[in-house]
Computed example of a mutant assay.
Amino acid sequence: MEIDKFVHLNKLFILYKSLLTEKQSTILDYYFEEDLSLGEISGEISVSRQAVFDTIKRCEVILNDYEQKLGLFKKEIEENQKLEKIVSIMDEISKDYNLKDDRIQVIRDICKELSE
């Protein structure tokens, strides 16, 4: 799986994990969180390697479907972009007016915290 696709699927899994079955969630936990290979996962849960592969592929479709319908990942990206814009504007203001105000740093810290 390509790295961008892997990262995207992992983010979707984090957002929609609670909507998956226990078995699906367990397999993806091993895959993403524990970084186990398909063979290692199959050994952990006593199913074939092919069953693990099929479950991951099925979950990929399911998670993309959830994202298409609910759009939580897209909203998170949009919110992070807005927060980055706020920080950028605050940086410009503090430079333009040569401000050393602690409140600006507080705003930056809040924006950073919200984007995590």
Rank of each mutant, 00 (worst) to 15 (best):
Y31V: 01
V61C: 06
V52E: 02
N64W: 02
K23I: 08
L28M: 03
K82E: 12
K75P: 09
E67G: 06
N64P: 03
I104G: 04
S46D: 14
E76W: 12
I104P: 04
L72H: 10
S46N: 12
I104D: 02
K85A: 13
E40T: 10
K11E: 05
V52M: 09
L12Q: 03
L38R: 06
L28T: 04
L83P: 00
N98T: 02
R49L: 11
L28Y: 01
N98A: 14
N10V: 12
E116H: 13
R103F: 11
S18A: 10
I56Q: 00
H8S: 11
E34D: 10
S25E: 02
L72N: 08
L28K: 00
S48I: 13
I93P: 05
K57P: 03
S46H: 15
L70D: 03
V87W: 03
L19K: 07
S88L: 15
V7D: 14
S46F: 15
I27H: 00
E76V: 12
K23F: 08
K82R: 12
D96K: 05
M90D: 10
E60T: 04
D35I: 12
L114C: 04
S115F: 07
L99M: 04
G71K: 03
N98S: 09
F53T: 09
L72A: 05
D35F: 11
I77D: 07
R108M: 04
I27P: 02
